[in-house]
């Protein structure tokens, strides 16, 4: 059986992005720091694991049956923004611009990893829209091969519903240099151009 320090190192080393050296450094810090600080961390982990669940409507993290966004009556429920992860939802929330609601897929179609539509919350999205029709679904999956394929799959699934399905714009990032953009990014930027004098 592993001694407590080895057990802590082994547990920390299972976290994403943490190798054995980092795990050892963190474990030694936790052992040497004030007892209350280490216990607070352990309680915070246990508390979060205990209280956080998935929102019954959008699959964002929630403390109640519905997350804070779905439960907020001032949000526009007629627009649903589909994102891959709760982290992506937070990024869009940080803009302060979007006032609609979300649907979190918890990944995207990744055939290499055996992740298909059945492993994501796509069927629930279709069901949700069938029960409560909306004006627009914005697909904000990542602009990668797999993110785009997931977007195409969702658009196809919603085709029959007649609901407006849009894809977030793709192209040159503000502050970047056209000279350094690759051909795909430039092509997307040209395709997604918009009128300036209307």
């Amino acid at each position: 059986m592993l001694d407590p320090i080895q057990r802590l190192i082994a547990s920390l080393a299972t976290l994403p992005g943490i190798g054995e050296k980092s795990a050892t450094r963190l474990a030694l810090y936790l052992i040497n720091c004030p007892r209350e600080k280490a216990l607070e961390l352990s309680h915070a982990i246990a508390d979060a694991r205990e209280k956080i669940r998935l929102c019954a409507r959008c699959f964002n993290y929630a403390e109640q049956e519905l997350c804070q966004i779905c439960a907020n009556p001032s949000r526009d429920g007629s627009v649903v923004c589909v994102v891959e992860t709760p982290g992506d939802l937070l990024s869009i929330e940080r803009t302060g611009w979007f006032r609609g609601t979300y649907h979190v897929l918890h990944g995207c179609i990744m055939p290499f990893d055996g992740i298909g539509p059945e492993q994501l919350h796509i069927a629930e999205l279709c069901e949700r829209i069938k029960k409560n029709p909306v004006a627009e679904v914005i697909i904000a999956t990542n602009p990668t091969t797999h993110g785009n394929a997931t977007a195409a799959y969702i658009a196809d699934q919603l085709k029959e519903s007649g609901i407006r399905v849009t894809r977030i714009a793709q192209g040159i990032a503000p502050g970047s240099d056209i000279g350094y953009a690759d051909q795909i990014t430039l092509k997307n930027a040209l395709e997604g151009r918009r009128d300036m004098n209307r």
């Binding site: 179609i109 797999h146 394929a149």
Partner: peptide, 12 residues
């Protein structure tokens, strides 16, 4: 070949 991603079956 970004067009491949327009069709999930082709991606798979």
């Amino acid at each position: 070949f970004p067009q491949i991603a327009d069709d999930v079956r082709r991606v798979v």
